[in-house]
């Protein structure tokens, strides 16, 4: 794959470049999967950033690694491992702090412990399986250029399901995210919404992490929404903007990775971060 990619020549003719890129089957699939992943991650990330749950989001993104490693060890399909681990972790994050009714600092200790333990489990499963570093890095950093058509279909189905579920609860969730106390007083089930959102975030992270790797889901979850929310405080503007930024960043990153020897994860995060820095500077100067 790397051999083909490095033989690609970038010219000034953009149409030619795109045609050259899409003459490879793996690039077409990478673009399909990347686009779906970017849209799902941008929408869920938008709520995550609004709710200031980036730490929980990062943990959910990372537990994909033990999930995938467990699935490889058990000999089942990687998707099941990802899905089970992400949903169970989401439930654990949502459930335990409320049972004791302790503040925010305590919650971060719990999330941090969960995350480290999940990664340690992943390492255990992986070393029990006797795998190599290549196995670890492909689970952690993804193989965007190795996506099969079946994976694209699964990603589409899981992503669409999660999006539909999120749309149903979007309005009360928005209310609860902006002012939880007032929302609770108005009879909005904030607790149920919080749990539901974390579970859906877990499902979305599981679906996306299969394509981008567990460590880089987080980039797609946090950077486009953070950029969009810098640009506009209005949900009706910043939510579509978040999706647009996510998709454009992914497309540019994939193309850059195709025409250079460096990995797509590096390009996607770097372009997304550059967009974020521009947005921060622009909103400061205003």
């Amino acid at each position: 794959m790397h051999v083909i990619a490095s033989s690609a020549q970038l010219s000034w003719n953009v149409v030619d470049d795109v045609r050259q890129m899409f003459s490879f089957r793996f690039m077409v699939n990478a673009y399909r999967a990347g686009t779906i992943a970017a849209v799902v991650a941008a929408v869920f990330g938008w709520f995550m950033v609004l709710r200031r749950q980036t730490f929980a989001g990062h943990t959910l993104a990372v537990v994909g690694f033990p999930g995938a490693a467990a699935a490889v060890l058990a000999g089942v399909s990687v998707q099941y491992g990802l899905l089970v681990f992400c949903v169970v972790t989401a439930l654990a994050i949502a459930a335990i702090p409320s049972a004791s009714g302790i503040g925010y600092g305590e919650e971060t200790a719990l999330i941090g412990t969960l995350q480290a333990f999940a990664l340690a489990l992943g390492y255990l499963f992986h070393s029990l399986h006797g795998g190599s570093l290549d196995g670890v890095t492909s689970l952690l950093f993804g193989t965007l250029f190795g996506v099969t058509s079946t994976q694209v279909v699964i990603l589409l189905v899981v992503g669409a399901t999660a999006m539909v579920a999120l749309t149903v609860g979007a309005r009360p969730l928005l209310f609860a995210s902006i002012d939880a106390d007032v929302a609770a007083a108005r009879g909005v089930p904030t607790r149920g919404l919080a749990i539901g959102f974390l579970v859906l975030l877990g499902v979305a992270a599981a679906a996306v992490s299969q394509i981008t790797g567990s460590l880089l889901v987080f980039a797609l979850l946090v950077l486009p929404p953070a950029t969009a929310q810098r640009l506009s405080p209005r949900p009706s503007v910043s939510l579509p903007a978040s999706v647009a930024i996510g998709v454009v960043v992914t497309w540019l990153g994939l193309a850059a990775a195709f025409f250079s020897p460096y990995p797509s994860g590096f390009w996607i995060t770097t372009i997304a971060f550059a967009a974020y820095v521009v947005a921060v500077l622009a909103s400061r100067s205003r």
Binding site: R52, G57, L216, V222, L223, A226, T270, F273
Partner: peptide, 16 residues
Amino acid sequence: DVVIGGVFAWVLGLGV
């Protein structure tokens, strides 16, 4: 949190 997340995501990319 969001600033940390942004820097952090980029640094992960550099790690890759």
